[in-house]
Write a protein that binds this DNA or RNA. Structure first.
Lengths: 333, 333
DNA sequence: CCCTCGGATGTAAGCGTTTGCAAGGTCGGT
DNA sequence: ACCGACCTTGCAAACGCTTACATCCGAGGG
């Protein structure tokens, strides 16, 4: 920077001001500095800049399972807008208990980020307090974190519409495949969707049968396993609501391999759902990442930002994996 | 840090040495410092530390399409080992021409990372030179970058084995679905797999028919489109090799919707391939991310590191999407 | 008993920016 | 011609560490 200043015949302060596009620099000087910087192919050291200014220009993104489709979409969406504004994205994948403990034990985000994006994770109170202690704005995607901004869908309403779709088709014995509620890695959406399932059945005057609610690890294997277990019941369900499309895929697989017929509805509208003709609840995941990043940007720039809440719409996408209860029952029964 | 030093009754230099685990500190002093730091819940500012030491403890990861399964796996794999060693992962998604130009125009990695991980991207010579000019070690996953370390599979051999599997089943008219070779976003694996296809057919004494080689955008839609076009040929193929499982999924979809029967073999062993009974070439993607990150670590710590090359094995996974040419041809006439 | 050597600690000079403050200049108004 | 307001620019002090170098001290060796 000294070199550029010398070449342009100004002080380093002026170079700094010019390069950051601050107003109080005359056009003439500006040109001279820019030219000098270009000829030396100089770029400011982001690190020194951060030390001096106190702003890190970095956003920490915390996800439980970076490799899953949903989280990949969110991260990609957020990355696209953060990058566009010159912000760095620091990814923390804390899906297992060890990583999580390490994360909250040493809180590596301290003094390192200007904002935090939390994706579909529920924290304990002390953990939330730790996060707050960072003193930076927080935005959550997929669920609420007290005191933080939030971009999400109405999980309860969306799941309810799924169940009502099945009820509308005449199903009365409806199962659910949900993820195992690991006490340490509790995922809030799992809880809400299961609650919607229970409440909607109850509201419809149907009994709630515990044996119809499967708790399995997330993923294809989990879904397959769950459906196989449901099929062995003395009175198996005629329809099943899966907490996510990936679980639904597994369920479909089990059905195909066993030759049985059960309506299946998923949740997410994963890119492969159309291929598998899975009826599902669509949410726009990538876009939620985009919007969350936008909110973060606002939180970082506006001085008196207060947490916003953005509710994204969902749609029921009807495909061939659900059908009226009578049809197949009659033909196979 | 001053505060800690005062509380422990030592100088800030000693605090610094203690906190970084340097040797020349007496046990007694060490304890005192650690205790003081703990009681003040003090952590060093990574930014100041970086400025002073010149090391960024950060790895830049460059991917073309962060949201795709393959890249998600690689990133997750790399993240897991980098995080474990306290290194940050800076993600750059430069899948479109604009992002790419911006990236190489301002080279935001300059002065910002200690190493770079490039995932399955081919660069022009000037771009490679730009990357080199960062002066940090580079490791590539999925392909070679001159002068860089490399973790990959033998794409040609793997693709050849796929074609030979089809040949062994008696197929003589074999199509290929590959991605459109956008001049700006050229993906090296696409080229290699296509080459293997052509060479293997030629070596088997078969003619190469241009109309059997489809070039489409990556993804399900691309695959579906390609298969539909292949099916409209006067003499359609009896088997098709898809450059990736996602393309193969699209192809399967087209087949299902049209009720036609064509053997399909994919590449990757995507997690959904088992579900769709797709015969494919398996590579361990997550693990490649892990290994690449390990190599980066070595490159950053060993002073005289020279690029290593790691070749990962692949396996042909036989499932129900490929069958001997005679069977279905006879039954469907 | 003096000298040397090595380990533990302190001192202070960076690292490369940003930014509050002050200085100098220009300009319109009186 | 003088004053104040405003804009441009420079000065220099942070920012919070790391590290080369100096210092101090006790232990051996001669």
């Amino acid at each position: 920077m000294e070199d550029v200043a010398r070449l342009a015949g100004v002080s380093s302060a002026t170079v700094s001001r010019t390069l950051r596009g601050l107003p109080n620099v005359s056009d003439e000087t500006r040109d001279r500095v820019l030219q000098a910087a270009a000829s030396l192919s100089y770029v400011v050291s982001p690190i020194a800049s951060r030390l001096a200014s106190g702003r890190t220009h970095t956003v920490g993104v915390i996800v439980p399972y970076a490799a899953r489709w949903f989280f990949g979409q969110i991260v990609a969406g957020a990355e696209s807008v953060l990058r566009e504004h010159g912000l760095d994205l620091l990814l923390y994948n804390i899906g297992d208990v060890a990583a999580r403990q390490r994360f909250f034990g040493q809180l590596p985000l301290r003094r390192r980020v200007d904002a935090v994006l939390v994706v579909a994770m529920q924290f304990t109170d002390p953990e939330t307090a730790d996060l707050r202690s960072l003193g930076v704005p927080i935005v959550a995607v997929g669920h609420d974190v007290p005191g933080a901004g939030c971009v999400r869908i109405d999980d309860v309403a969306a799941a309810t519409s799924a169940i009502q779709h099945l009820l509308g088709l005449g199903h009365r014995r409806i199962g659910m495949i949900s993820t195992y509620a690991d006490q340490a890695m509790f995922l809030p959406v799992a809880h809400e969707r299961r609650r919607a399932y229970l409440d909607t059945l109850t509201a419809a005057g149907l009994p709630v049968c515990d044996e119809l609610v499967m708790s399995v690890p997330h993923g294809l294997d989990g879904g397959e396993q769950a459906m196989r277990r449901l099929l062995t019941l003395p009175d198996p369900p005629t329809a099943v609501f899966a907490e996510s499309d990936e679980l639904a895929f597994g369920a479909l697989s089990a059905l195909r391999r066993t030759g049985r017929h059960v309506s299946v509805i998923g949740f997410d509208d994963h890119e492969l759902s159309a291929l598998l003709d899975l009826t599902t609840v669509r949410q726009r995941v990538f876009e939620q990442g985009v919007l969350a990043a936008g909110m973060l940007r606002r939180a970082m720039t506006v001085s008196d930002w207060t947490p916003e809440e953005l509710l994204m719409p969902t749609t029921l996408v009807l495909r061939a994996s659900t059908w009226p209860v009578a049809v197949r029952t009659a033909s196979t029964g």
